[in-house]
């Protein structure tokens, strides 16, 4: 059964130095609040897994939490580069970052294999690309029935998966909708899991066939209103595209990034205070 916890308690209990951790969310429902709490609690040597490392992984990498990144697309969608990711890869700042690079289809297959308890997943993918030359976790096999050449990737089995969802009930059953990405597979593939939610309600009222994570497959449920900002939560608030654009300027140089990190993440006690500090900064800018 999931335990309903404060976010800082959940990170303290379930995320350890050296863990392989997946914070998933495909542009929607990105668990920013949880990522910030990992930074605040100064976790180190993490292997970060995520299909689309966006701003939250840029922040974790720039803050020095990561030793390795497993990913398939690392950018600020529609805006440009992730400068902290680039600085780590190109210059080893703040520390060298090992990368294991996939395509989306391979990452999705690896999560599905993990959720299925299979050692690897199979896909019609990676044909002709240079990626297998640099990633030993992409191999090719022959279909035993037709002889077709197919790609194989080992299952993702994160120590911890963290996702954000719209709702949970008081027993810790979780409901999400909209662009649901790979979150269900990522939670089911993981040894431990944390789900932050917009609200905890008496009744979930999930329609049949909804994406529901039953309480007994979830480790901790943490109510964090607005916890996916600046990404969005369908039915609650829209994506803050202006912040994504603003991140380009904040993250471009080490100095501006560090100032931002100190003031808005390390200098705040929780996500509510983080958002308040952003508002104040905008007001007096």
């Amino acid at each position: 059964m999931a335990t309903i916890l404060q976010l800082n308690e959940a990170i303290q209990a379930l995320v350890r130095d050296g863990d392989t951790i997946a914070l998933e969310g495909f542009t929607h429902l990105i668990p920013f609040a949880a990522g910030h709490e990992i930074i605040r609690q100064r976790r180190r040597n993490l292997t970060l897994v995520r299909m689309t490392p966006d701003l939250i992984y840029d922040q974790l990498i720039g803050a020095g939490c990561a030793a390795k990144l497993v990913f398939s697309w690392g950018g600020n969608p529609g805006v440009g580069s992730l400068y902290r990711l680039r600085d780590a890869v190109e210059n080893g700042w703040p520390s060298p970052l090992e990368i294991e690079e996939h395509a989306h289809a391979g990452m999705a297959t690896a999560y599905a294999a993990g959720a299925s308890g299979l050692p690897f997943g199979v896909l019609r993918g990676y044909l002709g690309t240079d990626l297998p030359k640099y990633n030993a976790n992409i191999k090719f096999i022959e279909c035993p029935f037709t002889g077709e050449k197919l790609a194989a990737v080992p299952a993702h089995r994160p120590d911890v998966t963290v996702v954000h969802a719209q709702k949970a009930d008081r027993r810790g059953n979780v409901l999400m909708w909209g662009v649901v990405g790979v979150q269900k597979e990522a939670v089911l593939a993981a040894k431990r899991s944390i789900v932050t939610v917009e609200e905890v309600v008496d009744r979930l009222d999930a329609p049949p066939n909804s994406v529901v994570l039953p309480s007994w497959v979830v480790g901790a449920v943490c109510p964090v209103k607005g916890g996916a900002f600046p990404s969005y939560a369908q039915g609650y608030y829209p994506r803050n595209n202006a912040f994504y654009k603003k991140w380009d300027g904040i993250s471009r140089e080490r100095e501006t990034f560090q100032k931002w990190l100190e003031r808005h993440i390390m200098g705040t006690r929780d996500f509510g205070a983080f958002k308040q500090s952003l508002e104040e900064a905008t007001q007096y800018a």
């Binding site: 542009t27 529609g78 297959t109 896909l123 662009v179 790979v182 269900k184 969005y232 595209n241 994504y244």
Partner: peptide, 24 residues
């Protein structure tokens, strides 16, 4: 859309499927 998964894409779609389903 600015990103590949902006909310309006989901709101105006005929269907929204998971990412593993999309690629498979």
């Amino acid at each position: 859309p600015l990103s590949i998964g902006d909310g309006e894409l989901a709101e105006t779609a005929d269907a929204v499927v998971s990412v593993p389903e999309m690629f498979a």
